Each structure stands twice: as C-alpha cells, then as structure tokens.
Simulated scan of single mutants.
Amino acid sequence: MKKIAVLTSGGDSPGMNAAVRAVVRKAIYEGVEVIGVNRGYAGLIEGDFITLGASAVSDIINRGGTFLRSARCEEFRTKEGRQKAADQLRKEGAEGLVVIGGDGSFTGAMLLTNETGIKTIGVPGTIDNDIACTDDSIGYDTAMNTIIDAITKIRDTASSHERAFVIEAMGRHAGFLTLAAGLAGGAESILVPEIKFNIDEVCDKVQKGYEKGKIHSIILVAEGVEFEGNEFETNRDVNESNAFTIGRIINERTGFDTRVSILGHIQRGGSPTGRDRLLASRLGAAAVDAMLAGETNKMVGLIHNKIEVSDIKDAIEGKKEFDKDLYELANILSI
C-alpha cells in the first residue's frame, strides 16, 4: 500500500484534527502517502483532495473542529454516488480510506467497501459516545468538560437568584454524555433517554431540596428524553423543546423560579482535552496499522485501555450498554 486517504464526516468533535494528524504522520513514518478529503463524502465524490505531508498537520493537535471540514451528502447515500467516490479514489491512486466519524459515517464506509472493494477503517469521533466496540469516542471527554463548566457557571447565578435551572445537553437518543457530565457536575436531577422519568418525581425532588435548605436546583436533560406515561404529551406545547416543557411544569407545580439553558453547539467546539488528544493520537495511528495489516471494514477502538479492532458492522449495529449503576450513583449522591 503506497497511498491512503483520510476524511472526517458527520458532526465535528474536538480531537478530530489530532486524529488526522496521527493518521498522516504514522502513515508517512511507514512510507505511505496521505491525501486529505475536504468536506467528507461530498468532497470524496467531487475529488476535492489535498496532499498531506507532515508539515501540513503541524499545530492542529490543539484545535477543535476539523480542518478538513465536514458536510452532509445525499448523493453518497446512493449506490451511484458511492461508485463515483470509489472512482475518484482509484483515479488518485488511493488504496484505502480512513473515516473519522460516527455511526452514519461508518455506515457509508461499510457500504463503500461492500459495493466497490475500497478498503476502509473507521475511527470513532462523536461527542455522543454512543458507538459500540469502544469505551470512549473522540470528543466525548471535551464535550463532557464543556458541560461541567457550564453547570458550574449556571449554578453561580442559580444560587444568587434562588432558581432552578433546566440545562439541555446534546446526545440525540443517547444519555452517556448527560449522565457523565451530570454526575461530575453535581446535578440534582439527570434525565436521559434510556430511562423514562416521572415529572412528578422531578418536581418533588426540587420541592424537597428547597425544604431542606437548598436555594437552587440543577436539572440536566438530554435532548431525547421521554416522560413516563402520557404526561409529556398532555403538558407539552408543540412549540416548546423538551427542556422548556420540563422547566415550565416545574415552575407551575413547585412555584420555584425556573430558567432553561440550551447549551447547543458550544458543546461540540473548543480545544480538545489532553485525554481526547491522547485517544485521537492512539486511534489514528492504530487505523494506519490496521490498514497496512490488510484489514478492511473494521473500526479501531479503545477497550479497557487497549486498542481493539472490530468489525465495523458490529460498531454500527451493536448497542452500547447504558451504565445503570452509574445512574443510580448519581441519584444517591444528589440527595
């Protein structure tokens, strides 16, 4: 193998640049040329390539986002689009492709291999940390620390004004990020998609905390939370997000002054933590090792601090187990 390509796809996550850097420098060390693909699968179809030497990835290990950029590409969802992408790679002389992204990006990589024979290796990069076959994904630790920092700052004003704050975190239908940040940030209530919650219990916890002398309450909510029973649909205003519905109900039922903060895309940005830089460096280099060893349709991950190579299909279709013991610990410590 003399030349490989690398792209970042899907939502950006802090540490993607560090992963690209590791892919490039490890490949060069092994005598392999690297081309970068701009704008993910859209750039792959268009042949939007750049040559990446060692100096091209200098001073990016500390940068958030992805300098290769990312974009949605409906054409790549078609078999014809994937064939165009394969033709562009072969025209450029690339014999393999490293894909840094989440489950949607991995699905595209798997289809590309199955249909065209292009060798692919996946590197997990998503703040949601919902990809199977790895303990952590690139960007998760940085996003968690961003949320913790937000909780700390919001708690200051919550205490000053004796308020309850409902804070919405990212995570789609996965609560890994919310649970970790909520436990480490000391949230009084943590609401995640994996466990349906009862709004009366949340209100009761706020009320009891006030009666015990607490002058604030932090309720951390994942995007995809679900109410227990039909309580949610009964009380929801169609123009409200879940977090605003929860905040309104808490205010109505407890009388506690309640505010809502949607953290949004601030969670995806920022300089990656040392832990994310280390993870990205290890996985990027491991992806090159796997490709040079003849692997394809695989994903590299970190399990119990060891690099593991798994079938990319298992990473896509596997369900990461939610840590209910950690969730229970968070409830215990929030009394």
Rank of each mutant, 00 (worst) to 15 (best):
K2L: 05
D237G: 02
A54V: 04
G65H: 08
E226I: 10
S310W: 11
E74R: 14
L220N: 00
S189L: 00
Y29V: 05
S13M: 01
A293W: 07
I219S: 07
A19F: 06
V57Y: 08
L112Q: 13
F322Q: 00
I127Y: 09
C133L: 02
S241G: 10
T273Y: 11
F244W: 01
M110I: 15
G104T: 09
I45S: 06
M170Q: 05
E75R: 15
I332T: 12
G43N: 06
D130H: 07
N297T: 01
N129P: 11
T152M: 10
E231T: 05
T107V: 10
N331E: 13
Y29K: 14
N305S: 14
H304S: 10
G318P: 09
A86Y: 01
D48S: 14
I131Q: 06
E252W: 00
T234Q: 14
T134V: 02
I121Q: 07
F256I: 13
H161T: 11
L97V: 00
S241Q: 07
T134S: 15
T8A: 09
L278H: 11
N239Q: 00
A290R: 03
G229I: 00
G65W: 06
V23W: 02
L329C: 12
I215T: 14
N239S: 11
E228S: 13
G43H: 03
N235F: 13
R72L: 07
K324V: 13
L279P: 06
E33L: 11
G171Y: 13
L89W: 11
K320H: 10
N62T: 06
A56T: 10
A143F: 10
I35G: 08
R63L: 14
A315I: 01
D128M: 03
D325K: 15
I151V: 14
A280F: 01
G101D: 05
D59Y: 15
C203D: 00
A187F: 07
A56R: 12
R90L: 09
G43Q: 06
G117V: 02
T113C: 12
G15C: 07
F76W: 08
L111K: 15
N114E: 14
C73E: 03
I316H: 03
T273E: 14
H265G: 06
I335Q: 09
E295P: 01
I60G: 04
R39W: 05
T254P: 05
V166D: 03
V260F: 08
E95D: 15
S159G: 10
R155P: 12
G294D: 09
I4K: 05
G96W: 02
K26V: 01
R282L: 13
I154F: 01
E80Y: 13
E233V: 13
G224C: 14
I121F: 08
E211I: 11
K91W: 03
G36Y: 04
S9H: 01
D59T: 08
V34E: 05
R268Q: 13
N251G: 01
K2W: 01
V37Q: 14
L112F: 14
D204G: 06
N17G: 02
G36H: 08
T178C: 11
